[in-house]
Design a protein around this nucleic acid. Structure first.
Length: 281
DNA sequence: CGGTTGCCCTGGGGGC
DNA sequence: TGCCCCCAGGGCAACC
């Protein structure tokens, strides 16, 4: 699934089409995503004006303006591993097999949520209660915000005996990093993914914070890096070649390093980790 | 309590 | 070509 940069790119892709627009029709074709769609979702959303499209961690947040007695509500979208939000003209084209939800706007555009693996989530919560939602309350800081500092990361990792790689994937310590960018940031910072999280020195944590920000910002600037499941929100298929230094490059030489073994793959907490044993210590 | 494992689901790729 | 196994960007509940 899209990690933070891909979700941010999706947000930027759909925001111009949604912000200020009114949702005129909302259709849910199947309700059994990772969690069930909320009751009466279509009637609760149809007719509402979109106040803003935001992002928190890997969630897209579509803020719906109040309507009559209805308070401001937020549609929460998580793309899971294979989810997409595609913008297209509302031209009546029938939905594809995996397009589970679709909604159109008074500007003649349609947003389709497709998710073959159905690991995604779509929910509706009162905007004022978002902060106490169990999915959002425990989230760590946004890595691209000023709140994500060396000191903040050190505090989040203090005493932790898990690996630094697993810690970076823990959304409660820092939010939005997934498997690809965890690998890439550790490579950039020269830190072994197997090192215990609580034992990384402040100097190296400072490098890691900078590496996380750098790798995420560059991915956003590039439009998000892609994997096979991803399609840019504006609809064009497959954007971009991968430009990863170590992710999915087992056995290949890492950039600027001719160490014999090349990039290694190990499994940590059930997820593949790619790293260079020579450059990462 | 913190950390690790298994599972939710479908599709694509590689090996045979 | 076909089949079968393995793997995949996440998150969470159930376990140690």
């Amino acid at each position: 699934m899209p990690e933070l940069p891909e979700v941010e790119t999706v947000r930027r892709g759909i925001a111009p089409h949604l912000e200020g627009a009114r949702i005129v029709q909302f259709v849910a074709r199947r309700a059994d995503l990772r969690t069930r769609l909320p009751e009466r979702l279509a009637e609760r959303v149809a007719g509402r004006r979109v106040a803003a499209v935001r992002r928190r961690a890997k969630y897209v947040l579509v803020d719906l303006a109040p309507r009559g007695a209805d308070p401001a509500e937020t549609m929460i979208v998580h793309l899971g591993m294979s989810g997409r939000l595609v913008v297209r003209a509302a031209d009546g084209t029938p939905p594809g097999r995996h397009e589970h939800v679709a909604f159109s706007t008074d500007r003649g555009m349609e947003i389709r949520f497709s998710d073959p693996r159905r690991f995604g989530v779509l929910d509706l919560v009162e905007t004022a209660r978002l902060g106490e939602d169990r999915r959002f309350a425990p989230l760590g800081p946004e890595p691209l915000s000023d709140a994500f500092t060396t000191e903040a990361l050190a505090a989040a990792l203090e005493g932790s005996r898990t690996s630094i790689k697993a810690a970076l994937l823990d959304q409660h310590r820092v939010a939005g990093i997934g498997n690809i960018y965890a690998c890439e940031a550790l490579f950039l910072a020269g830190i072994s993914p197997r090192r215990r999280a609580g034992s990384v020195s402040p100097e190296r944590l400072a490098r890691l914070v900078a590496a996380v920000k750098d790798v995420l910002a560059r991915a956003i600037a590039a439009g998000g890096s892609s994997a096979r499941d991803y399609v840019q929100s504006s609809g064009e298929a497959g954007w971009f070649q991968h430009s990863w230094a170590v992710y999915d490059r087992e056995g290949q030489p890492c950039p600027g390093c001719d160490c014999g073994g090349g990039v290694r793959r190990v499994v940590q907490a059930g997820r593949s980790t790619f790293y260079c044993a020579r450059r990462q210590r």
